[in-house]
Write a protein that binds this DNA or RNA. Sequence first.
DNA 1: GGAGATTATGTCAGCGACTGCCATTCGGCA
DNA 2: TGCCGAATGGCAGTCGCTGACATAATCTCC
Lengths: 232, 232
Amino acid sequence: MAAQPPPAATDPAGGSGPGTPAGSPGLRERKKQQTREALIDAAHRLFLGQGFARTTVDEIASAVDVSQRTFFRYFANKDEVALAVLADAEDHFIGLLRRRPAEENPLRAMRAAIVESWRDLGSPLRTGSGSVSRALELLQMIEDNPTLLAAHLRRVTEQERVVAQVIAAREGLDPAEDLRPTVIAAVFGSVLRAAHLSWTADQEDTGPEGMIALIERHFDQLGPALAGDWRA
Amino acid sequence: MAAQPPPAATDPAGGSGPGTPAGSPGLRERKKQQTREALIDAAHRLFLGQGFARTTVDEIASAVDVSQRTFFRYFANKDEVALAVLADAEDHFIGLLRRRPAEENPLRAMRAAIVESWRDLGSPLRTGSGSVSRALELLQMIEDNPTLLAAHLRRVTEQERVVAQVIAAREGLDPAEDLRPTVIAAVFGSVLRAAHLSWTADQEDTGPEGMIALIERHFDQLGPALAGDWRA
DNA sequence: GGAGATTATGTCAGCGACTGCCATTCGGCA
DNA sequence: TGCCGAATGGCAGTCGCTGACATAATCTCC
């Protein structure tokens, strides 16, 4: 959904070439991944150091020693490089959701998948140690920057559409007919966002366990919140 | 929340001057409102006619015969002029929500307020007849434009925060302590957005009643969607 | 291992959004 | 009428982003 170079005009990355049997990526492919990651890295360093708005694309590009034009062939805009790692994490989550057992009801499946997803983010498997604390810094930065926040929310919304499709498929429903998948996906997104907000508000609990606990707390409020009289 | 000139640097509009006892707005004030509305009008005409991206700020400004610089004193960016009328409608909704009777439970209050709000939009009271069909065109345009959609979602999210505060106040709760207001506000936002999407998808039902019916249908799916097994 | 087809990269020119600065004009008010 | 503050205009400049074309690197196949 977002792991690759994306909306850029000529798409420098993209699946391993036509001839390559997907066995080994090939030199060209490896180089592309390399520059992509270098760009993300440099961008994050600069963003966190001097702020998103005060960092120009030229700075990022020359930090990696490529032209500005090349930067824009990897990322459609400045926002995208900032949100790239989150986008990757979201893709990972979707994969996990798809693999949840079919017997689980939708809400349980989503909850389990998101928890798994944060666990994985904390494990040493992921590239770049300290992904979790970096994620926190990123979320903080996003929350502080209107432009970034807008772009992030758009991404998240798009992801909700995908979640709705997955849920509908699991239950054998047509999303155009039955509103429940869409509604439940939206509700799920809401709970997540509320949890993210809490996480960035409290500066404590930076580990993945802290986030997981927060997510579960918010999930647990869903029933009570929807129940009739709160003062009862 | 967004009815006035906003985040612009020097804020050309703003409450009636210091000396003015708020009785009559004064010429200066009237002129400002006038240019503001003229800008919004011209912008919408151009956007709907030739597309958002293909309309330059210069075009909008010269259509109203003001300088580009002046445009940016009224609106912080091109997005804002496109979303201005929606922002006003949202403010109206918040006002209605505040006036709902205290006995209603939160979800009922929100549902009633949003329905009222759309009714009002359809009534001849509002400026510019055909506000509703214009709203539909706007939502369509927003949905088709990534940048606009992002900006819109940010606005909507900000509004959710306000809704959560209002709900918390109604129930005498502290939003920092009790997660329920935040969660329910988010859920409400989700339902609305899902309804908006349906509205722009189906091209029929352009009247306010069509939208109201859609909103209620989505609300009604909330319970079933959250209930355990969908196949039961 | 080299010719030729692909594809990534660099360079350049240009548009459009947005901002700071200063001069000018206009409405409010004594 | 004349002063004050606020709104406007004009201008120069930065930055994000794009199209077009030339160059250089990789890949493919013989």
